[in-house]
Simulated assay, not measured.
Amino acid sequence: MTSHEIITPTSWDFRETEELSMSNTYEKEGFLIESANKQYLELLKKDIENAYLDFTRSYSKINTSLEQAHLSISHSESNELRLFIMQALFKGTNFHRNYYNSAKHIIHNLCGNELSMQKRPGLSINLPNNLNDVLPIHADTWNGVSPFELNVWIPFVDCSNTMCLYILKRDKYNRRIKECNGLLKLSSDELFDELFDDLTWIPIEYGKVLAFDQSLPHGFSVNEENISHWSINCRFKGLHTPYWDKKLGEYFMPITVKNCTRMGMNYQHPDNWI
């Protein structure tokens, strides 16, 4: 074997070294952490900070850093703040474009380059000790979401301990699938307690991107730290892969439609030549 040859699962697997490395980690662990494109990440954070500033001005509140939002925002206002910022961010497509570009190399390596993207990404604001901000344990595929999707999750503050997303890693998920029956009959709290010892909380710093398999059980517990959590998750998928309940044109929009696809969609057979 020469230094330029790459070991792949089959002779028809033409993926290159970086893609194979990312893919192997993602397949084994169920998630992957890589550096974001800083230029685009800073644009995203600035948009969030500006929207947060508009909210505090509108409600005559003190403006703080994102990490200290809990000093200005009460627990009961957390969801109102989240909806206000989402409305500001998603008026056009600039935020979507910057989001895609901030994690483009990860998305291309794991998902492809002819893509559709979630129209309204999800913003998480988890204030310290706010029970209303808990995201119960779930897997998106349990509710009609396509297993062909990639969830790209970007934090806008450093996340550690209970600020982190937790996940049931793939090996433990596969073991539980073999050992257990009827777990989906449990309530969310009961399922969380049942799986607790096998869950992994994923620490991640601002400047990094987490891509994870949303078919694995995951969620957010109560933030017991003294810093507010801010993150956004957005789903990407191969344009031509199955959509299940989340449809193209409704939940997803095409973002990188290649020329052959565009031409094929507009093709007209010359029937009158026959």
Rank of each mutant, 00 (worst) to 15 (best):
C111Q: 14
A139H: 08
C111G: 07
S116H: 03
L123D: 08
W142P: 06
I137V: 13
F156V: 13
R120P: 00
L115P: 04
N151W: 00
Y99F: 15
T141I: 14
N113F: 06
S146K: 11
I154F: 09
V134M: 01
P147Y: 04
P147R: 07
W142D: 15
N113E: 05
N113C: 07
S124L: 10
W142K: 15
N132A: 12
G112M: 03
I125Q: 13
R120I: 15
Y99M: 10
N113Y: 10
G92L: 01
N109M: 13
N130Q: 02
I106Y: 02
N109W: 01
A139E: 10
P155L: 14
L150S: 08
N130K: 05
I154Y: 08
L115F: 05
S116L: 00
L135D: 07
S102P: 03
D140K: 07
S102Q: 05
P121A: 00
L135K: 14
V157L: 04
V134Q: 05
V152S: 12
L123P: 08
P121E: 00
N130S: 07
R120C: 06
V152C: 14
S102L: 02
L135M: 14
S124I: 11
F95Q: 07
G144Y: 02
L150F: 03
T93I: 00
I154L: 05
Q118H: 09
L115V: 09
P121W: 02
Y99N: 10
R97P: 01
F148W: 13
L110I: 07
L110E: 07
G144I: 00
I106W: 03
R97M: 04
Y99E: 08
N109V: 11
Y99L: 13
I137C: 08
E149D: 10
A139M: 09
W153I: 13
I154Q: 08
G144M: 03
N132F: 03
H105C: 13
R97F: 12
Q118F: 04
N126G: 10
N143K: 11
L131R: 13
R97D: 01
